[in-house]
Each structure stands twice: as C-alpha cells, then as structure tokens.
C-alpha cells in the first residue's frame, strides 16, 4: 500500500480549510446579530471593528491565510492547486483501499501537548493533524479508538475505510475495544 501524496495533506487541508473559513466567517460583521462595535461611524468601520474585537488570534490568523490563498494573483498557486492535490489524495486513498480493508495510523503524532503550548507556532499546531486530515480531505469515513498510554497520556489509533464502509470500521473498533478496554482511562490532571 502506497500513499505518496501524504506530505501534501497538511498544506492542502490548511489552504482549503482556511479559504472556506475566511468566507464562512464573513457573516460575523455585527450587522444582523452578534457583537457590534460601538466605536464605528461608517459600515466599513463597524464591520472591521466588530470583527477585530470579536475574533481571537487563531481565527484572525486563519482568516488572513484563507483570504490570501483566495486573493487575485494567488488563488491559482494556492487554492486551485490545493483542490487538485485533494483530488490526487482521494484517488491514492481509493486505490490503496482496493488492496486493504482499512488504513491504520496513530490518531496524532505526539501525546497531547499543554493547553496554549503551540498557539504561537501555527505550523507545529497544524502538523498535529497530519494523520486525520487525509480522510477529511478525501471525504472518507474514519474513526479514532483509545489504545493505551504514552508518556502517561492516553493515545488512540485512527482507522480509515473506503466510502460507505462505516459498518466495517465500527465492527473492527468494537472487536479491538472488547479485547482492550482503554476507553475509560483518563489523563492525570
């Protein structure tokens, strides 16, 4: 089984996801509902201040990134290429799933990091998603199953199946969980 485009998954996902987010979140402008800044005298100012006051740093960062990858002169290099990469990732997964029933990986590459630890390093934050992103991009069913501890923290594995193979994925995880009941374990707080 071979998934040569795995290294494209994270950049592809973050181009597509931030592009969509920048547009999806445009409705939070203080006009119809939600927070409206009291400082504004024009509609542009009202929208700008309401959004700047209301959104947190990660949301602003994603909106800026998504706005950039869709902007004139850059959309072809980023957004359109990401859609093409997404097609490639899908076809590679479909080919692989012809040969195997499901694909097993860790759910995340490292045990849970501390709250707020990676917020200033978006790249490291985004790379945490490297194993779960391909299924999301390809529109394939996937699930995560608790499977023990690493460095005293609970970890899980991730199963990806062919389209409409949810039943098979659930059956496999049920068999595993019956033999290895990790689901009640908790992290030390």
């Amino acid at each position: 089984m071979d998934l040569p485009s795995s290294d494209l998954a994270v950049p592809t996902y973050y181009v597509v996801a931030t592009a969509e987010a920048s547009s999806n979140l445009a409705r939070y402008d203080g006009v119809r509902y939600g927070h409206r800044s009291t400082q504004a005298t024009t509609p542009v100012e009202m929208m700008t201040l309401s959004r700047s006051e209301g959104f947190g740093p990660e949301v602003k960062r994603r909106i800026l990134l998504g706005t950039f990858v869709l902007s004139a002169g850059y959309a072809d290099a980023y957004y359109v290429r990401a859609l093409r990469a997404r097609s490639k990732i899908l076809s590679e997964h479909l080919a692989a799933l012809e040969k195997v029933d499901m694909i097993l990986t860790p759910t995340v590459p490292t045990p849970a990091f501390k709250a707020g630890e990676k917020i200033s390093d978006p790249l490291q934050l985004y790379l945490e998603d490297i194993f779960t992103i391909p299924a999301n991009l390809a529109g394939l069913p996937a699930l995560s199953v608790p499977c023990g501890k690493s460095q005293h923290l609970p970890v899980g594995f991730h199963l990806v199946g062919a389209p409409l193979s949810e039943k098979k994925l659930l059956a496999a995880s049920r068999v595993f969980e019956a033999a290895h009941p990790y689901r009640h374990q908790q992290a030390p707080l």
Partner: peptide, 14 residues
C-alpha cells in the same frame, strides 16, 4: 461559486 464582498445588504458577505 461564492463571490466574496462585504456589504450590509449581503447577509453572508458572499
């Protein structure tokens, strides 16, 4: 497709 622009008469801003 979405045509993105902010304007008060455009509810989703696209």
């Amino acid at each position: 497709d979405r045509k993105n622009y902010f304007y008060p008469d455009n509810p989703k801003n696209y």
